[in-house]
Design a protein around this nucleic acid. Structure first.
Length: 993
DNA sequence: TCGTAGTCAATACT
DNA sequence: AGTATTGACTACGA
């Protein structure tokens, strides 16, 4: 609870900007009826496509085939939605012409349309009337799209309730004939499955869902529920993503609002400047918190759900013998049915954490085995099941939350029988979920669209301009809204002409409008992602890459406008697309979007236009110079932060309040650290806490960093799996079963590795390199060796080995301890781990590292020498460990890593392999099961290759497919870069050990 | 508390 | 300026 509350303000703060805008209450003016009508029609037209797609998806084998399928669907749709409407020829989202026509048709389709419009108007009116002047401070154009979403969600929620209410109260909603998917879906939900039956290919729902949905909407009215749920739910926040100009203005977020009366909300300047969206949000909020509609039982500032009333004795008595299994089953069904997360359910219904819920649901104990306390959750579940409102409430709340949950591919347990006819459909259950979700999503979309529309016209004029405005990044090119309208095969010209005029407008809109769509999957895209059985991501990305390249469109703009992703994400997506089947629904979204984008005749134009717009905006900004506050054009906005900072008289402004400049610096691992981590990973991909701590100490990194690395490494390894390629051996925990991580072993091996590195440095040409080339490129090592400081020989190794073993016997093992001894002032590694970058030289060489090149080398060598000395100091002991023979390995023709060339890539792979072999061998002496190690290491190597340039030369090499090749290239590049970097700045290489 | 998937966003390279 | 890499986060389920 408190948590939520706290966070809220922060979040809002970001959005807070704004300029004088009419408060929502007055918004009516802005929303003339005709305006509304227009918006509605637009929205409906936009929505339509999604629905179509949805249906199509069910049939289509591939998205690419949608055209044809769409048609069919369309027909079916028509029959379903609007029997009157003539069958469309082509409804495919890709077919722009047809699409337009279709849209057009809808627009003109008054019957339902009018009705719908009216309804909407009514709803809006209600909302508006209710909205109090308080504008929700938060709203503003959130720099990031996320904020808006929440607001929208909330608004939708309220809206939804309204509609539901309307319906119940007799407000007749027309038979949503042509209604946009939103209404149609809703109707379906409300009416039950019958409607669905109309569709030939529609999913056959078991009556269950519909009824549930019905209840859902019905219940949604309950203010209390909604309210409570609301409060519970915390919208996803994006912490500092937005260059918040003003952190001070705390805008209560949904939660805050729900808690605080509208009047209470800090209106500040924002109130007046609220954007449509903001207003919407405020309205919604106020509605939710005190709307008359829901105010029936309203529970005033009801505490967040957090506190659940204890179960009364009475209740206990009432349920003296529950079938836990059955309850659990039903709960699970309900949760999956409505995509209610365990977290939400647990926190709001059971008063338990997500983990507990998971446990409870997975392994319910029989009633008789439970203590009274243990029975409580089941009683609550029971009550939950018997309370229709409960489900509704949760759904509503979840709704407000992030729809991401929906995207999860998670399997829904109970998979009812699905019609065999629908082969490509996901499990029924899932579909059901989707449906209910969709229903909601539709609303969302609709709302968003409306808002966007509003934003368009009004935003610019009245909307904020404020500083925080610039949408951080990510411009949402209304791919989903417009995409569908465009048809791939049709002459683009037509569209272009039509749109050209609007282009500018659109651009603006895009820039200004909130785009929350991206944040949360749009229904359409979501549907497609969920229903598409297979899609060749490789092909799609290839096409995208070509298109971008050909048109000189950057990943950044493409990502922001089309995919709603950052440049980095786009890069990854394009360069290493995961196979479709490996993607979660959410992960599929970008590909769907790409597909849609490819189908959009104006795709390039749009982006180009956007690009220009941005350029202009930047120019303007620049020219404006220090014009701090205005930049009305929030447009593209890249970083306003820059703008601002630059404005301030550089140095002068003392760390001006909260110098935003606090960019968190990322930890950079040194090559040694990386190597150490890789080694550790090979030994144990799933290190336990002790191991992690050991590594953290050993490497001078925070445990957090270590765990992150492992997580990332594991994941990236997995992602390596090439498209068709055989599944990469995933590290799975099982593999590590064997020997637990052994520090001694680790050190020995690591040392060995480092030795190899050194050798490399030495430039042992002609000798197969047992290690990755980049090591060879490490000047520091070479330097060390050259100076004779380091000598890789058995003796050393054995010495080290002994030393380690000894340490293992109880002496302090940590490297740090060793270091510390040397360093008088040992500064504990900053636990913060943030600052410590790779060069943790800090402790190691007392020398401070910064020194570049030479000095650095010195330090490194010194430290290394010291370490070795220490080791030696420990007891010479007989060499128990024998240096691996790897040197002689010639299994694979190793190439000498000379100049970093592309060919090196291959070399790398080979090297890696070698390594693996070596390790396994060495293990023997060290007492590692060869097999085990080999497996692990092998796997690791593969990973490495992706992450690090290493490559396995296994037979796989020959087998490698394109992807692998690509990887190779990458690795080659990487190597090159590494080498270069090393040469350039030796500082990167600090010898930690 | 963990592991996973999806991202972000700071960096490093080109 | 664009792209690739990668440490860190968030949201979830177990």
């Amino acid at each position: 609870m408190s948590k939520l509350i706290e966070s809220e303000p922060a979040k809002d703060s970001k959005d807070a900007p704004d300029s004088g805008m009419p408060s929502f209450g007055r918004s009516e003016d802005g929303m003339a009826d005709d305006r509304i009508a227009h918006i509605l029609s637009e929205a409906s037209s936009m929505i339509k496509p999604s629905q179509q797609q949805h249906h199509l998806a069910q049939h289509q084998q591939h998205l690419q085939q949608q055209h044809h399928l769409l048609k069919q669907h369309d027909d079916s749709m028509n029959s379903n939605d609007d029997s009157k409407s003539p069958p469309n020829q082509c409804t495919s989202p890709f077919s722009r012409d047809s699409q337009n026509r279709r849209l057009k048709k809808y627009d003109n389709d008054d019957i339902p349309h009018d009705k719908v419009t009216r309804i909407y108007q009514e709803e809006l009116a209600k909302l508006m009337s209710r909205s109090s002047r308080d504008s929700f401070p938060s709203g503003g154009m959130p720099p990031t799209s996320q904020m808006p979403d929440d607001n929208i969600r909330m608004a939708l929620e309220a809206y939804h309730r309204e509609l539901a209410k309307l319906q119940q109260s007799g407000g007749n909603i027309p038979n949503f004939p042509n209604l946009p998917g939103l209404l149609a879906l809703q109707q379906q939900a409300l009416n039950g499955a019958q409607d669905l039956s109309v569709k030939k290919e529609s999913i056959k729902m078991n009556g269950q869902t519909p009824s549930n949905i019905d209840e859902l909407s019905k219940d949604s009215e309950d203010p209390r529920h909604s309210g409570s749920a609301f409060s519970l739910v915390r919208p996803k926040q994006e912490p500092g993503t937005t260059p918040t100009t003003t952190a001070s203005s705390a805008a209560p977020s949904p939660l805050g609002n729900s808690i605080l009366p509208p009047a209470m909300t800090p209106t500040d300047d924002f109130s007046s400047a609220a954007s449509p969206l903001q207003r919407m949000a405020s309205i919604t909020n106020s509605l939710i918190s005190q709307s008359p509609v829901s105010s029936h039982h309203n529970s005033p500032a009801r505490p967040l759900k957090a506190v659940l009333p204890p179960i009364t004795q009475q209740q206990f008595d009432m349920f003296n013998n529950l079938n836990t299994e059955d309850i659990v089953r039903r709960v699970k069904e309900a949760l999956s049915q409505y995509s209610i997360s365990q977290r939400l359910f647990g926190e709001s219904v059971l008063g338990l954490s997500q983990g507990s819920v998971s446990d409870l649901l997975a392994r319910p104990k029989p009633w008789h085995m439970l203590t009274q306390k243990g029975r409580e959750p089941f009683i609550r579940m029971k009550m939950f099941l018997e309370d229709d409102n409960a489900v509704h409430k949760l759904v509503a709340s979840q709704y407000k939350i992030a729809p991401e949950k929906l995207m999860r591919t998670g399997n829904y347990s109970g998979t009812p029988q699905l019609p065999q006819s629908i082969k490509q459909m996901p499990p029924m259950q899932k579909m059901m979920n989707e449906m209910s979700k969709l229903q909601q999503e539709q609303h969302l979309i609709h709302m968003q669209q409306m808002q966007q529309q509003m934003g368009n016209t009004q935003q610019q004029a009245m909307l904020l301009t404020p500083p925080g405005m610039p949408p951080h990044h990510r411009i949402s090119l209304p791919s989903e809204e417009k995409k569908p309208m465009s048809m791939p095969t049709h002459s683009p010209q037509q569209q272009q002409q039509n749109q050209q005029a609007q282009q500018h407008h659109q651009q603006q809109q895009q820039a200004n409008a909130m785009r929350g769509m991206h944040q949360h999957m749009s229904p359409t895209v979501y549907e497609m992602a969920a229903l598409t059985q297979d899609l060749d991501t490789q092909i799609i990305t290839t096409k995208i890459k070509e298109a971008l390249l050909a048109n000189n469109i950057g990943q950044k703009i493409f990502g922001e406008a089309v995919l709603g992703l950052s440049q980095g994400s786009v890069s990854e997506l394009l360069s290493k697309p995961k196979p479709w089947h490996m993607l979660s629904i959410k992960g599929r979204e970008p590909f769907i979007r790409m597909q849609l984008w490819l189908a959009d005749a104006n795709n390039v134009d749009r982006l180009q236009a956007l690009k220009n717009e941005r350029r202009e905006a930047n120019k303007r900004r620049r020219s404006t110079g220090p014009g701090v506050q205005d930049n009305s054009s929030d447009t593209s906005s890249n970083d306003t932060s820059e703008f601002y900072t630059s404005n301030s008289p550089g140095p002068g402004s003392v760390g001006s309040a909260g110098a935003p400049p606090n960019k968190k610096q990322r930890v950079l691992f040194s090559e040694e650290q990386k190597e150490a981590l890789r080694l550790a990973f090979a030994l144990d991909p799933y290190p336990n806490v002790a191991t992690i701590e050991f590594l953290a100490t050993e490497l001078g990194l925070s445990t957090r960093t270590i765990t992150n690395w492992f997580h990332n490494h594991r994941m990236r390894l997995k992602q390596q799996v090439p498209h068709g390629g055989p599944a990469e051996p995933v590290p799975s925990r099982e593999n590590q079963s064997g020997a637990p991580f052994d520090p001694v072993q680790f050190r020995i091996l690591l040392n060995q590795r480092l030795m190899e590195l050194q050798k490399e440095r030495m430039g042992l040409a002609g000798i197969p390199l047992p290690y990755p080339p980049y090591f060879a490129a490490n000047p520091n090592l070479a330097a060390l060796i050259g100076r004779g400081l380091l000598q890789s020989n058995e003796a050393d190794l054995s010495a080290l080995n002994n030393a380690f073993k000894e340490q293992m016997n109880g002496l302090d093992l940590s490297m740090s301890s060793l270091k510390r001894e040397r360093d008088d002032d040992f500064d504990e590694m900053d636990a913060d781990g943030d600052d410590d970058h790779v060069s943790d030289g800090d402790d190691d060489d007392g020398g401070e590292g910064d020194a570049k090149s030479d000095s650095n080398k010195e330090d490194l060598s010194a430290s290394l020498a010291a370490i070795q000395a220490r080791a030696n100091r420990r007891k010479p002991a007989a060499p128990q460990w024998v240096n691996p023979v790897w040197h002689q390995d010639d299994k694979k023709p190793l190439v000498t890593p000379k100049a970093p060339a592309d060919d090196e890539v291959i070399i790398n792979g080979v090297c890696v392999m070698q390594q693996a072999a070596d390790y396994s061998r060495s293990e023997e002496t060290v007492r590692i099961e060869p097999q085990d190690v080999q497996d692990r290491f092998g796997g690791d190597n593969e990973d490495e290759r992706s992450d690090d340039d290493e490559r396995t030369d296994k037979e796989d090499l020959s087998i490698k497919n394109d992807k692998i090749d690509e990887k190779d290239d990458e690795s080659a590049t990487e190597i090159r870069t590494k080498i270069k970097s090393e040469e350039d700045d030796g500082d990167a290489e600090r010898w930690d050990y």
